[in-house]
Design a protein around this nucleic acid. Sequence first.
DNA 1: ATGGTCACG
DNA 2: ACGTACGTGACCATT
Length: 848
Amino acid sequence: MKDKILLVDGHSILNRAFYGLPDLTNAEGLHTNAIYGFLTMLFKVMDEEKPDYLTVAFDVSAKTFRHEMFKEYKGTRKPMADELREQVPIMKEVLTAMGITIIEKEGLEADDILGTLSVKCESQDFDVVILSGDRDLLQLATKRVKIRIPKTSKGKTEVYTYYDEDVVAQYHVTPDEFIDVKALMGDSSDNIPGVPSIGEKTATKIIVEYKSIENAYAHIEELKPPRAANALKEHYDLATLSKELATIEKNGDFPFELSEAKLENIFTKEAYEWFQKLEFKNLFSKFEEEDKENSHDINLKVVEDKKKALEIFDAAKKVPLVGFALKENYGISLCYNEQTYVILGDYKDEVEKLFSSPTQIGAFQIKDISKELVIHTSSNLFDGIIAAYLMNPLKNDYTYKDVAREQLNLMLDEMEPQKDLGYEAYTAFHSQPILEANLKQSNMYELFTNLEMPLVLTLDRMEKAGVMVDAKELEEYGNELQKSISLLETDIYKEAGEEFNINSPKQLGVVLFENLGLPHGKKTKTGYSTAADVLEKLAKEFPIVDKILEYRQLTKLKSTYADGLAHFIGTDGRIHGKFHQTITATGRLSSTEPNLQNIPIRMELGRRIRKVFKAKEDYVFVDADYSQIELRILAVLSKDENLIKAYQDQSDIHRITASNVFNVPFDEVTPLQRRNAKAVNFGIVYGISSFGLSQDLSITRKEAETYIENYFKTYPGIKKFLDTQVEQAKENGYVTTLYHRRRPVPELSSSNYMQRSFGERVAMNAPIQGTAADIMKMAMNQVSDELEKQNLKSKLVLQVHDELLIETHKDEVQKVKEILVNHMEKVVDLSVPLEIDIHVGENWYEAK
DNA sequence: ATGGTCACG
DNA sequence: ACGTACGTGACCATT
C-alpha cells in the first residue's frame, strides 16, 4: 500500500458547512455550525479514505479570504457573516488541538497551497486526496490525485469523487483544459473576467475542439461560431489574464515538513475540551478510548450488608448534603464526604426518612424518584436537571451525564448499572454547590427554591391523580367519526376520479393541482402546500376541497384523540399523563403521553371529546382559567398608564382598544373593529409584525402597519417596553421575566434578517409568556398545597397554561372555588388585578 | 429522522 | 430579495 495524504481546503469546507447547516450556538452564544459541519465532513472523508497524512490549508490575508468565501455567492460581495468570521480562528484552534497541521502562507491562496502540495506528494509516490467545496480544484485531478467535493441534496451530503477521467466524463475536458474553459467563460465571484459573450457552452466547445486557448488563437480564423471568434480576437488580453488567474499555482514556495502531517491520534484530551466547550455531543463517542484512560475513578463502595447500610443512612442524616440516585427495583446510591455508596436491596423507609431529615438532597429528575417513594417536602431538595434547565432553557433535555460533563468536567461513558448509579449520586453531590452558585449569580436561586422545586411535588401529585376518561364513550365517539370519514372518503374518490391517500400531502397535491388543475397557492420545499389556509381559499369554489378539509378534521380527531387517548387509559380508568418542567424555552410546562394541553375546544365536533373527561362518582370538575393573563402582564411589565387604567376600570379591553385605534366612540365600536383590535392585542404579545397581523386579519400590510402605529400611539408605554426588551436582549444575550427567569436569544446576533427578526419577536414575547408561566406555577403550588393542608379530597388534575382543572368532591365545591380565587387571583400583587373565570360541571365539556 | 399538518394556550 | 406572528406535541407519510 502506498501512503495516502488528505489535503483539505479549509475555508471552502468551512464555508459550505456554514451555509449548509442550521444555526447552532453553544451556551455562551458562540456560533458553531460551520465548525461542526467541517468536523463531521472531515471525519466522514477520513473514514472513507483512511489517510496516513493530513493537512489543512487556509487562506491567510483577509482579502483573499473574503474573496474565497463568497465564491458561492454569485459575485455578491457582502462582508463575511460575523457568525462565520468568529468560527474561523476557533476552527484553527480545534484542528491544532487535534494535532492536525495547518498551512497558510501570506500571498498564497489555499488553492495554490493545495496545488503545490498535491504535485509534491504525488511525485513522492503518495496517493493524494483533496477535499474541497470548490470545483476549481478539479484542475488538479490526475490518476493519483483525486478531488472530493461534497454535495448536499435533500438533506443528505454525498462526497463526489473525481479522478482525471471523471472530470473528462462530466465536463468533456481534461483537468488541464478545465482551466482554459474557466478562463474563457469567466467567474465573476472569483474575479476572473473571462471573455465577454462566451459562456460555459461555447467555452467548452472551443476547448474540446482546440484543447487550449493558445491553440484556439492559432486557429482563430476557422473558429466557430463567428461571434465567439470575434470576441476572442477583441479580448486577447482578457483571455490571457483570465487564464493566469484561473490557473492554480503548483510551485508555491512555503515550508512544509511532511513528517508533521503524519496522522497520530486526533482525539486528544485538548480536542475533547474544545468539543465540550462547543457542545458537540454527537461527536463525543469518538473519544471513547481516551475517556477510559482519563475517566477518574471515584471512591465507590457496594454495600449489601444490611447493618452497614443502616449505618450509612444514619450518617447521611447528619451531613449537610447528600448526592442521591435511585434505580427502580435495583438499589440506591448515596454520596457524601468524598465517598459514594451503592446500596443494593429495598431501603424505601430509610430513604424516606433521609428525605424528611434536614440534610439537603441533591439528585436528578426528582419527580421520577418521587414516583417510587413518598416525599413530603421540597425544602431540602435540589434537582440538578432543573437547575441546569434554568441556566439554559434552550437545551433539549439534560441527563446527569451532561451535568457531569458541564459542571465537573467529567466524561462518562456507558457503564454497568451499579457504577452508573454511583456516578449519578457522585455527580449530584459534586455539582450541587456549583449549580447553586450559578443560580445565585443569575438571580434565579429564589425562582428555583420557591417555585420550581415545590412544583416538582405539585406535578407529581397531579400526575399520580390522573384524570378519568370514559373508554366506552370514547370508543363510541370514534366509531361515529369513522362513519363520517368513510362517507367522505367515497365522495372524495368519486370527485377525484381515483383512489389515493388523502392524508399524504404529496399525493393530495398531485390530485388537486395537477390532475384536477386547481390553482395552487404557495409551495413548500417538497411540493404544493395543502395547508388549511390554502385550501380554505379554494373551498367555496370546489366542493371536493371542502370535503378534504372536513376529512382532515375528522381523521385528526379520530387518530390523535379518539384512538390516541384510548391507549393511555390505565386499569384505574384514568389517564396519567406526564407534565414536563424542563422542556420549554419560556418556562411553561409541556405535556406528553398523551398531550393533555391540546384537547380540542375551538370546534364543536372536537370539543365533544371533552365530555369523556369525567369527574369520578360524587365529584365534579371545577375549572378556573385566567382571563387575559398575558395582556394583563403586558400592562404590568410595560407600566403603560392607559392599559393599566383600562384593566383597573375592568373595561372590555378589546373594545377600548378598538375605540382608541380606530378612533370611534366606545359605544360605537363595531363587532369587526373589536375583533380586529383583539387580533392586534394578541399580535403585540407575540412580538408583532405587520406581515403577521395582515395575514391573520386578511388585510394589506399597509393597513396592518396603520393599526400597529395607532396601537402604539394609544399605548406608548408598550412600544417603549417592547423596544427595551429587544435592546436588553442584544446587550445581555437574554431577556428575563418578572421573577427573573431567563430566556437566551442567540438569534439576535445573526446576520440573517429572518433569524434576527425572530430573535426580536422572541425577546418581546418571552418575558410576557414566561411571567404568565411563573405566576401560574406559583398558583398551582399554592392551590395544591392548600388542598392538602385542608385535607380535602379534591385534587388538581390538569394544567393548561392559563387553566387549572380540579376534580372536586361535591361537598367541597365551595371551598375549592374559594381556594382557586384566593390563590390564583391573589398569588401576586400587581398593578392590575388578575381575574379568573370559574365553571363547574360533571365533565370537562360542561366545566368550560 | 424529518417535514407537513393541525390540535391547544 | 427575502418570507414570519409566540409557545408546545402527536400523527402520518416519506426519507
